[in-house]
Design a protein around this nucleic acid. Sequence first.
DNA 1: AATTTTTACAACCGCCAATGG
DNA 2: ACCATTGGCGGTTGTAAAAAT
Length: 473
Amino acid sequence: MMMMMRRRGNQVNAQNEGGGSSGDSGLINGGGEERENDKILKKGPWTAAEDMMLIGYVRAHGEGNWNAVHKNTGLARCGKSCRLRWANHLRPNLKKGAFSAEEERVIVELHAQIGNKWAQMATQLPGRTDNEIKNYWNTRVKRRQRQGLPLYPPDLEQLHTLRHYSQPPPLLPPPPTTAAPFSFQTPMMSLHTLTMPSALHHLHIPHRPPPPPPPPYNPRSAATTLPPPPLHSPNSASTPPTLQSPSGSTPPPPPVSPLPSPHNQPPFSTLPLIDYPTSITLTPTAADYDFFHNNKRFKLGESQINNNSSSFMLPFSNEQNYSNLPSSSSKNFHQPHLDSGLFYPFKTVQDGSSGDGLLEDMLRESQALAAEANDGRNKEPPKEMKSAAQLDQEEEDYSKLLNDDGPTSMGMAINEWPSNDSGESSARKPSAVTDNEKQPALESQGFTPLFPDDHAAAMSSGVQSWDNFPGIR
DNA sequence: AATTTTTACAACCGCCAATGG
DNA sequence: ACCATTGGCGGTTGTAAAAAT
């Protein structure tokens, strides 16, 4: 079982958890729960069933309005918790696993440039969340301190020091808004296929566009922006150094971020959208028998696809009973992206029974809500939909990605033993490797892997799809 | 092999800003 | 102008697992 997380929920949560509740919401209900409007809100680790409910909700209603989740679905989580769970674990395109050497380099560069701006840094690292980056950095700080190493390599130390004396430069500008309207693989693909943009390799501060007017002074952010001073700074002089452009006399073009800016894009704009909101169907397609597990792609054989299996069941109850799962670890089910894979907590109902119906109920409820929303009124216009051409392109990109294992490609190093700028290795092997080693084969249970093991690296780069989610087409 | 240390990670907390009534 | 709601951000904590001793 995944870690038995501490239950800080036993504490009073005086805050209103993202505003989802009014000030009187802080009634304690021991055992990691909290009451709100007579509903008990859970705290602590999310169960797979809860994840499914949240996913279903988002697919039906889109992101945002997180406090409506528990009101509409009965999911006993506060809106804030839902948002966090979605953003950090459930949304598509997330890349899990150890940071690649290139990613580490980017983080260090960005940190030298902007400090603890995790959210901004995350916009430069496709598939990575601010939380991941923050965790990585904190770990790095501890490690470097213990080793007596500087936080930054010499070239970045210069930049870092400069930052103490000057206006922090703006982040890389957003890409042109004429980019493809939507592709949930676009950010990753661009980095993967183009390797790291030079703008992320070298931070040419002198050539950047002039910084915008300083924002109003914010004592809070001012207090948190500066990173801890370098431990062994080679540039600890009291005067700012002159920063030389590493590119010599030819200024590089303005850096272009491969990512949409959070300032002109809706958050998590990479969510693959469906024909909102009534497209949810319970009819499985062949793709529903196609899933990823443990970095392998599996597909049910024809003999395993029951013609009668028009329903799916969650192989666990609300109380997270994993006993019916294939031999995969519960951890992987609890964290559907851990394998950089897709959701695989589904088994077809072979005996014609309907299963526990949780997912069906969830989907039907979403469908009913969607229908209600549509009911002849000014419904919310459909969000972006993929055209057939887009889907084809994604398929093609995906195929390319699977065949592309260039050593400098962003994201391919997920299973490599990363070493950072100073040549040190992370003290811990990426867990995905050991997980793979541990995993019992699903083949013995009737699943056929569609890709060989080396597919793992490509999948680990964050290529994910909703297409395998039951009832999506 | 046992124990200790370190790392990775998820989730929460507290605060702030934006928004809308 | 005020207040409530909502979403977001950065800091912090606790635990499991891995690595080191």
